[in-house]
Design a protein around this nucleic acid. Structure first.
Length: 435
RNA sequence: GUAGGUGUAGCCAAGUGGUUAAGGCGCCAGAUUGUGGCUCUGGUAUUCGCGGGUUCGAUUCCCGUCACUUACCCCA
């Protein structure tokens, strides 16, 4: 790479989307949109800049202090580039809360920013599908959202062998920490952090973290027991937990809908956001080489209320475009993309330019995606080569003979089939060849 | 912020202390002036990331620096 005063490289942690990349991105996003709309979710968007304070108390200290792009504007206002969408969503919902029919089913695909060192699956700018439902306090909201999550991945051809949803509940964790273990606030944070990273470290290192958090042996034993427990066993450890009851309800519903193969209870799921109050979940890739969270979400019952109006409970998740792409790539599920054009209209010579352009216009009017050759000196062989290289399946050529007869020659490249047809018959003929 | 890996053309990539820096893909042109895919020919690097040092001579050795990348930290 040459080091010139102006680099052609995109800013660190961001990506250029050349047409090919953009086509894939649009294909992925459109499929996401399509699936989410089948549940009645409506798309929204908000500004990329928000008041700094929107994140200051609600997201998490780490994000605000170290990973937020922020600056002071000319009016001395402190502004931040959105690192996540949920606060914006909460703000927008709060602004119109009285006018919105419930439940509120919204989704968005915003670009989000975080200042950190890029690594696999994590860049500084990424796009994230956010799906949220606000209003219902019952587990039916969770049930619906998990269905959406499952269907999103199924829409790309994935199934329960490719991914798994791990579910936990903040109230259950709180029962364990407060009532059963009786931890103090610092211990709670340290233990939560240790549990969160438990899968990535050795059992000894995990135990060491707990000891460092001033846990005594009996507490450690309880934690270990909890982390290996299924829901029945959890009932013995935390018999009074409201979170346990909600999880039991949720899993009954999931089983009734035949979705239990996709979902499992996982006491290790923590999630970093401070605003989660209930169910939390993460979707994991089952592939050993890509074994990490694809995306996640949870219930936040107090977020909308922070804007002073009505408290509206909500639950949502965010799915990053980078991790989604990695997931699809890992399993060979990336969609194949169609060529930009279906038809290339050749140019025999400069005299037949206008007829060729008019022919292309007529084909477009018939609903076809058509591009013209614009260089009158390009040899016919080259013109066919262009079609071949761009993956355009059909070439239409009109030479002097055809033009005199009001015809054109249509060639289907893949089969080599070629035939002459009256101009009026071309659209039907081409549609037939494309089918 | 910490640690490793990598920087040779648009992409992949070989290579050597010594006149002209392999090869492949792609791209452009021609063989083929009414027809693509195959084949053949030619063209595609004035700084081998950048700067400095050692040397008669550095793309090659040394130092620095920057960029990319992976992991850690942290996690949306």
């Amino acid at each position: 790479m040459k080091d010139s005063p102006l680099s052609t490289q995109p800013y660190k942690g961001t990506r250029d989307f050349f047409p090919e990349d953009m086509q894939l991105r649009s294909a992925l996003f459109n499929r996401l949109r399509q699936v989410v709309s089948t549940y009645g979710y409506q798309e929204y968007d908000g500004p990329m800049l928000e008041p700094f304070e929107l994140y200051a108390s609600k997201t998490s200290d780490e994000i605000v202090n170290e990973q937020l792009y922020s600056f002071t504007d000319r009016g001395d206002r402190k502004v931040a580039m959105r690192p996540e969408m949920t606060p914006t969503l909460a703000r927008m919902v709060a602004a119109k809360a009285n006018n919105l029919p419930r439940p509120i089913r919204w989704f968005s695909i915003p670009n989000l920013w975080r200042y950190e060192r890029p690594q696999k699956g994590r860049l500084r700018e990424h796009w994230q599908l956010n799906v949220d439902i606000l209003g219902p306090a019952a587990q039916d909201a969770e049930l619906e959202l998990l269905q959406v999550a499952i269907d999103l991945l199924r829409a790309f051809g994935a199934n329960e062998t490719h991914f798994e949803i791990q579910i936990n509940h903040r109230e259950l964790t709180n029962s364990l920490f407060n009532e059963v273990l009786q931890l103090n606030p610092e211990q709670r944070q340290a233990v939560a952090r240790a549990i969160d990273k438990r899968d990535k470290i050795t059992p000894e290192a995990f135990r060491e973290l707990l000891v460092k958090a001033a846990c005594h042996d009996e507490q450690i034993a309880t934690i270990e027991r909890f982390l290996h427990a299924d829901l029945n066993e959890v009932a013995n450890i935390c018999p009074e937990s409201s979170g346990l009851l909600k999880l039991q309800t949720l899993f009954e519903l999931l089983t009734a809908l035949g979705l239990s193969a996709y979902c499992s209870f996982s006491p290790t799921i923590m999630r970093g956001f401070d605003y989660y109050t209930g169910t939390v979940f993460e979707i994991y890739d089952r592939a050993p080489e890509n074994r990490r969270a694809l995306f996640g979400g949870g219930r936040y019952d107090n977020l909308v209320g922070m804007f002073g109006g009505e408290k509206i409970p909500g639950i949502g998740f965010g799915m990053g475009d980078v991790t989604l792409r990695d997931f699809l790539e890992t399993h060979g599920l990336l969609p194949t993309l169609p060529p930009a054009s279906q038809v290339l209209v050749g140019l025999f010579n400069a005299d037949l330019k206008i007829p060729a352009y008019q022919l292309a216009r007529d084909l477009r009017a018939a609903g076809l995606r058509v591009e013209n050759i614009l260089e009158p000196t390009k040899k016919m062989g080259k013109q066919f080569e262009v079609a071949d290289k761009k993956g355009i399946p059909i070439v239409v050529m009109m030479g002097p003979d055809e033009h005199a007869e009001g015809c054109a020659t249509v060639k289907h490249l893949a089969s080599g089939h070629q035939e002459k047809a009256a101009l009026g018959d071309l659209p039907a003929l081409i549609q037939q060849l494309l089918a």
